[in-house]
């Protein structure tokens, strides 16, 4: 078991945001956290690497209790790709090098530079390596952000809606890259997502969050019209195309607009 989450509760200003979150993910698995806006998806992600300190519960990665580690040690176990990255006048190479920060004592070592060069190759960013990140497109910036998280050499990768602002081609490219890394390097990835169809295509496991609690959890079998209706309040049908499930909303919205 690579990632084990036990009974996480999180309160913000006395108001319970997450209640009793329990789940486990294996090495080489991609977990999608799904649910409507405000269900607590991003909050849950930030609880896993202690950006938010949960009120109770624990997160265990490779037998280490995350909440008992210092911030550098946490950053060596969990790489975090936030939804928004500020673009500075910093080159792609130096931005990715920043991911070595938990390891760098005083000087950047040759080893750090080699690891960054390798991550750049992994995400095919060689041609951009000395370009400043304020000149990149959304898709390129997202790849840089992922590479930056990878050079932290994490056991678990946390991604907050990695494809939310990307076009179709970039969405597919980024998710394929994530999937290849997860399988090829046996890391665990946890990502929040909005698009159910993309989630169905790429993830191995699913968690549906509703009002800060896990409503359903499991493999593809747990994604059913009933669950989706209960969580999103939308009627859907699921059809299979070449073995991949595809979700269609069947609600007739036109009536409510008249």
């Amino acid at each position: 078991m690579n990632l084990q989450v036990n009974g996480i509760d999180f309160k913000y200003n006395g108001h319970a945001v997450l209640r009793d979150i329990d789940f486990q993910v294996e090495k080489g698995e991609l977990l999608a956290i799904l649910g409507p806006n405000g269900a607590g998806k991003t909050t849950l992600l930030k609880c896993l690497n202690a950006i938010h300190r949960p009120t109770s519960g624990s997160v265990i990665i490779s037998e280490q209790d995350v909440f008992k580690l210092n911030s550098d040690e946490i950053a060596k176990l969990l790489g975090y790709v936030p939804q928004r990255v500020e673009a500075a006048r910093l080159t792609v190479f130096d931005t990715i090098l920043m991911g070595r920060k938990p390891y760098i004592k005083w000087r950047v070592g040759d080893n750090d530079v080699r690891i960054v060069a390798s991550a750049i190759k992994m995400l095919s960013l060689q041609h951009l390596s000395l370009r400043c990140i304020d000149q990149l497109s959304g898709g390129e910036l997202q790849k840089v952000s992922i590479a930056r998280a990878l050079v932290q050499e994490p056991k678990v990768l946390l991604l907050d809606e990695p494809t939310s602002s990307l076009d179709l081609k970039n969405q597919l490219e980024i998710l394929h890259a994530i999937k290849n890394i997860v399988k090829g390097h046996s890391v665990t990835a946890v990502m929040t997502m909005h698009d159910l169809n993309t989630a169905l295509r790429f993830a191995d496991k699913y968690i549906f969050l509703k009002d800060g609690q896990i409503f359903a959890h499991g493999g593809q079998e747990c994604v059913t019209p009933n669950v989706i209706h209960a969580v999103y309040d939308v009627h859907v049908e699921i059809e299979y195309r070449n073995g991949t499930p595809v979700i269609f909303p069947v609600e007739d919205f036109s009536r409510s607009w008249t």
């Binding site: 950006i51 931005t95 920043m98 932290q152």
Partner: peptide, 11 residues
Amino acid sequence: EAGDETAKGLG
């Protein structure tokens, strides 16, 4: 510089 979220994720 890369954002508070990124920085917090880096410890």
